[in-house]
Design a protein around this nucleic acid. Structure first.
Lengths: 317, 317
DNA sequence: CTGTTAGCGCATTCAC
DNA sequence: GTGAATGCGCTAACAG
């Protein structure tokens, strides 16, 4: 009755009186006792690499919102980059009833061992696990398409991409998507993989600029790399957007305040986090489901870093 | 015995056999049952404003590290900026045994109501609560001193500061500290309060630049504002560092890759999070303590955005 | 429709 | 030295 069972037929006034009295006396149902009975904790465990990259903050926020809506609480586990664990290393949390399910948001796979899916309810966020059915990812293909369509419409034919390494699942999918999109005759794309850091973006751009066919439009996988990319362009005297069009795949308010305001593709990060939590709650409740592809809202945020390529280059045979 | 009670006198081989068998069968102690008995959950609840500002990622990371060391787990609660609650609104988490204590990391105070400390174990992170004894903060005074000493050594006399509003406790303490530090004859400081956003920093800088006594050295409270500050300086034609020295109070790798590499004061964010968790565990265990002031590692990261003021201005009477 | 009871899994206590 | 009983707070199933 104290949990709001409506099936009881008590006079409303009586019910209210009781509830008021309970509240006044400070009564709180003990979730551990309740959990013991139901074999449910009401908590979900989320394993994240707590990078300073703001995308995780957005994913977390979306996840937390969806969790409170589902009456769940989220506990955060931090996986340090220098101590990459297997997803199965976290299932003890469910086995010892600390959580009902696992949200696995670590992008990097540990090397060597063949992946096995955890034996407890789980969902992979922003990456695919070893099997279909428990993955919630964003529509990277659509993101790449927005980029490629935008710059090819401006007249660019030689594209470039700076992103992380391919062991990161999003990078893998982006690379495949952009290759497919640039397979049209006359189009090409140079893909540089580098660390997800400023220095990584810097080095990758240097490599790109030393090619004989320097791209005229560049996509950058994340904000940290973007700062390195812009530094390399600045030092090389390559003006944005006249010598190089630039598109970031991390949207952030700061982009509008840089030397040149940078156009970006805004990914549905909060939606991703929320969708993952909803999917996990389904699985905890025994409703299994298919993989989820989050495609909205995924838009190009136009700023000032894209323009047609220089005529001199464009017309060169 | 299964939890490693050494007081039992079992033959080591027997003990090992049992433990091995337990492990093989996948036995896991149920933390809810254990918790029910001990009236302990082994979890701490952390209320954060999930801003995209990377400082929260660092604080979280430090807190999570200290939590695993203390055998605790941290659940995260997100307080949206548009729905500021009272700290006491979260004590139900402890009352219904979801957590053993509260880490309150929201900086902004809700207006109107007089603050009352939660009636459960709690610690305020990076802000002071209504009473002394449960606050873990960083040494903002030391941070300001590093800034003021550095630029005054370079010859600056008119300083400026862009930061958030004074209802944010860190800002309040910084403002008091910098005023005290600049009370020497011939020194002055202009303090502009603004939103913790790029636009806020932009507007604040515009106000600063329109003064009759424009500062020659500027401290900026956080990274978001910094982008706005730099845009305003750029548009005004004020060169960094020649026309304006710049110091950020958020350290971030990206600072080294901006148009001008920005000097910063690196705050002990991870240490702050860790110290808060340790303090809270003490309080949960019944050991009360004093306020904690985290002062290390707090250093000036020299980059390229500080220089002596222009001679023309410096020599003007 | 209301009141009582058994048992969730563990740790502590007591009896053996 | 070992084993069985008790109760943490709750709820589902039951008996009244």
């Amino acid at each position: 009755m104290l949990n709001g069972d409506a099936s009881l037929s008590i006079r409303p006034e009586t019910r209210d009186r009781i509830l008021a009295a309970a509240r006044r006396q400070g009564y709180r149902p003990n979730v551990m006792a309740r959990g013991l009975k139901h074999a449910r904790t009401g908590a979900l465990a989320m394993v994240v690499p707590l990078l300073r990259n703001p995308v995780w903050a957005s994913i977390q926020r979306g996840a937390l919102r969806a969790a409170v809506e589902g009456g769940q609480v989220v506990m955060i586990l931090d996986e340090p980059e220098d101590d990459v664990r297997l997803p199965t290393d976290y299932q003890y949390l469910v086995e010892e009833s600390r959580a009902d399910g696992l949200l696995i948001a670590t992008a990097r796979r540990p090397g060597g061992e063949r992946p096995r899916p955890p034996a407890v309810p789980h969902v992979y966020i922003n990456r695919r696990g070893p099997q279909p059915g428990n993955n919630v990812v964003m529509d990277e293909e659509k993101a790449m398409r927005l980029f490629v369509e935008r710059v090819s419409l401006l007249g660019h034919r030689r594209l470039g991409m700076v992103d992380g390494f391919k062991i990161i699942d999003t990078v893998y999918r982006r690379a495949a998507a952009v290759r497919a999109l640039c397979s049209a005759p006359g189009m090409s794309v140079a893909f540089e993989h580098a660390e997800d850091t400023e220095a990584g973006g810097y080095e990758a751009t240097l490599r790109l600029l030393s090619r004989h066919d320097v791209p005229t439009a560049l996509g950058v996988g994340n904000l940290s790399q973007l700062f390195g990319v812009m530094k390399a362009l600045r030092e090389a005297g390559a003006a944005v957007p006249d010598d190089m069009s630039l598109v970031s795949f991390d949207e952030d308010d700061c982009l509008g305040f840089l030397e040149v305001a940078v156009t970006s593709v805004s990914m549905p990060l909060e939606e991703l986090g929320a969708a993952a939590v909803r999917a996990l709650i389904d699985r905890v409740d025994g409703r299994s489901g298919a993989d989820v592809l989050v495609s909205d809202p995924l838009v190009l945020v136009e700023r000032a870093s894209t323009a047609p390529p220089r005529l001199s280059r464009r017309l060169r045979p």
